[in-house]
């Protein structure tokens, strides 16, 4: 069981000694029980930090933001930044390190084990509260405990945990500078890729019915892309910023431009966007599940990424975020890679 005070003490200590320039963690937000990302720079703020089942966010996104948007950090990183990372988050950091997005010494990983549980899926919680609002959520062994106006509500974590956490194989941040909580590998409550396996039991026609329905529903708010630490490209293929239109631009110029994906949120364009994204995440996605959590219309994006993850594992023996020095999935190969499908 993790004592949040230990996390706070570590953060305070690191900041007080000047060993890190900031700590990226979680704090209580202004919306009921939900935690939100916190960026603290002075030791006094350390007491704001929280650790509870609503700490969903994969904060490694903000390591990317620092590099991408803050010129002075890019040019002179100075002291490292500390970050609180769950197992999946730490694996994302490993992928970023593998891709040389920043250096290992630029980040101080305060690992937190998910131990016997994981994070909450808000959508699963609502039916248990009968319309009541929770003002606090806490870990307690195998349970989550929620505070509502009507009193305390204790639920078995597995009833309301995110699917990805139920299926998680590695709920422990192996890459870390400091770590809290026990490594409870092998505690998984569902088989790895359980949801994917269930889905794949359907025939091709049913799978298309399912996906075409969801591809129609995407509103292209790009929350999945924006929340993903792996979607760090300076220019995404769906954006039009590479195509300046000047007074000199003729209709023909416009017509002849390569527009991979149109702005219209219609099935054909949404498919191209979501499939391309899934491909770009193959071997990089660590199943933090943020894309699916952020999606305002509940498109089951995680299934696509899961599919790629399982193919990578089964066909190529590849595990995303396993080692900093290892090769990346699509920039490497083995002589033994399958080739039977090729004529």
């Amino acid at each position: 069981m993790i004592n949040v005070q230990d996390i706070r003490d570590t953060a305070r200590d690191l900041l007080a000694k000047g060993e890190v320039r900031a700590v990226i963690g979680y704090r209580r937000g202004s919306r009921g029980m939900l935690a939100e990302p916190a960026f603290i720079t002075s030791p006094e703020q350390a007491d704001e930090l929280v650790w509870d089942p609503t700490c969903f966010h994969n904060l490694s996104l903000y390591l990317v933001h620092d590099r991408k948007f803050l010129d002075h950090i890019r040019k002179n990183p100075g002291a490292p930044v500390a970050i609180i990372a769950k197992g999946c988050d730490a694996r994302s950091i490993v992928v970023l390190l593998q891709e040389h997005y920043f250096k290992r010494e630029d980040v101080y990983i305060i690992g937190v084990s998910c131990e016997g549980t994981g994070v909450l899926d808000e959508r699963k919680l609502a039916p248990h509260l009968n319309g009541a609002q929770a003002s606090n959520a806490a870990f307690d062994g195998d349970d989550f405990v929620f505070t509502t106006a009507e009193g305390e509500k204790r639920l078995q974590a597995r009833e309301v945990m995110a699917d990805r956490c139920l299926e998680c194989r590695i709920p422990f941040p192996k890459e870390h500078n400091a770590v809290f909580g026990e490594d409870k590998a092998g505690r998984q409550m569902e088989a790895p890729f359980a949801a994917l396996t269930r889905f794949e039991e359907q025939g091709s026609g049913e799978r298309w019915d399912f996906w075409s329905h969801h591809f129609d529903r995407c509103i292209r708010c790009f929350a999945c892309r924006s929340v993903c630490p792996m979607c760090y490209c300076d220019e995404c293929v769906v954006d039009s910023i590479t195509f300046p239109v000047t007074t000199e631009t003729t209709a023909e110029d416009k017509a002849n431009r390569v527009r991979w994906i149109e702005r219209s949120a219609v099935r054909s364009e949404n498919i191209t966007y979501l499939m391309t994204r899934a491909m770009h995440l193959a071997g990089r996605c660590t199943d933090c599940g943020e894309c699916e959590r952020a999606c305002p219309v509940n498109v089951p994006i995680r299934l696509l990424n899961n599919k790629m993850e399982r193919e990578a594992r089964e066909q190529f023996g590849f595990e995303p975020g396993a080692s900093i020095g290892g090769p990346s999935l699509v920039a490497s190969f083995l002589d033994s890679d399958p080739g039977d499908f090729i004529r």
Binding site: S204, E206, D209, I271, M275, M279, M308, L329
Partner: peptide, 16 residues
């Protein structure tokens, strides 16, 4: 060979 296998699997996965 790797990349094409992945896209092939993904296309089949969505029901193409």
């Amino acid at each position: 060979r790797r990349k094409m296998q992945l896209i092939m699997e993904l296309l089949e996965f969505i029901g193409v």
